[in-house]
Write a protein that binds this DNA or RNA. Structure first.
Lengths: 207, 207
DNA sequence: TCATTATAGACCGACGGTCGGTCGAGAAAC
DNA sequence: GTTTCTCGACCGACCGTCGGTCTATAATGA
């Protein structure tokens, strides 16, 4: 019955299970007991590691955004053009990891609002500074110019994370594409490069 | 003990009380019983009018965004320049009505996530089309031009509503101003008008 | 008088969180 | 080498709260 594990291992075990369950059933619908059953531990053990259910979510969100920021940070040392770095940095945060294993997902909209908000918040806070570094490098190299680097990146991140989140706006593929095109266009304007410069580069790499 | 009221009156009474309480204590922390005490009704009465606590929130959000959209719509018939209409339309949605009567407010961040998300969602859906009309009028009158009217407005709305919401990002007055300036600057770029055109108009009216 | 509508509040089950206590590995004492 | 002690990991019964249900009944009106 009783299995003793290393502190960090056990803690990660709980975080992993919670992440799986939150993604599968939604934060609100997932109970602490669900997590206990998954990890095979008792109530007390759970609350030995976390002081609340919300604290587990915070741990998940932190881990998620830290990984994204680290990946983006690594792009900085790459030996490529600022534009390519920018694109790679954006790719770094698009890790819709979790296997979409369940069809219930559609219904979660209001069961994950808090998680979405926290993720958005952390993502903007941790990614914006990294993006700003890339923007500034591009300015030095005369690739582009930019009046409000930090604020523009915050605006870009906030709007793209919000509008491309299926959990918030249900949109068909076409309107998703239109939003993407508009977002790229806004980025071009923010950096004062001529129209479609980024769009072309984007299509070559991924289109 | 038993007071009978008109159906709509009673329903609005509940919505009003809930709105006050949700703003004061936060949605999660506000219990149905709190609402009952405020309105002086019994559980059964509440559930006679609403099938869930969340449904009351939906009613609040709907009423809120409908009023905002109506106000904005009314701006359309005004006899002013497209730029002024645009500014008035933005003002129309900035109704931070509720008196900030409590100091607990600071803590609510995570107690209102769902409400914020729903409001953002409805706001974008209902305001964007109205703004697009103004944009198109401006295009006709050669005040500006615009490549993706609807998408740009969605981007603008999503980012401004997210970044200026104190509940999500705690920012001091200075960074709030910087964000505002950057948002206005983005709008200028979206509509291809020269730098600071809107900023100047904005400062004249409100600065 | 009878049906419909509105109100009431006791009650329920589920859930997040608490609390007192158990277990066992290893350090310390003898 | 054995006993004692400490301490961190773990357990699960229990509790209070909360959203939601159910049934009774008062008021209305046809």
């Amino acid at each position: 019955m009783r299995t003793i594990k290393d502190y960090d291992d056990r803690k990660n075990e709980i975080i992993d299970a919670a992440e799986r369950l939150f993604n599968a059933k939604g934060y609100e619908k997932c109970t602490v007991n669900d997590i206990l059953n998954e990890v095979k531990i008792a109530k007390g053990t759970f609350y030995y590691y976390f002081k609340s259910k919300e604290e587990v979510m915070d741990a998940i969100v932190s881990r998620y955004t830290e990984i994204a920021a680290q990946r983006a940070e690594r792009v900085l040392c790459l030996d490529t053009s600022p534009l390519e770095k920018l694109m790679h940095a954006f790719m770094a945060m698009q890790m819709k990891d979790q296997v979409h294993d369940d069809m219930l997902e559609e219904l979660h909209k209001s069961d994950n609002a808090l998680m979405h908000q926290k993720t958005l918040n952390m993502m903007v806070l941790s990614m914006a500074p990294v993006l700003v570094k890339i923007i500034e490098e591009g300015i030095e190299k005369k690739a582009w110019s930019c009046r409000y680097p930090l604020q523009y990146m915050q605006i870009f991140l906030a709007s793209s994370l919000t509008l491309t989140d299926e959990g918030i706006f249900e949109q068909n593929t076409d309107s998703q594409k239109e939003i993407m095109a508009a977002l790229i266009s806004v980025l071009e304007k923010m950096l004062n490069v001529s129209e479609d410069t980024f769009m072309k580069a984007f299509m070559q790499n991924f289109g």
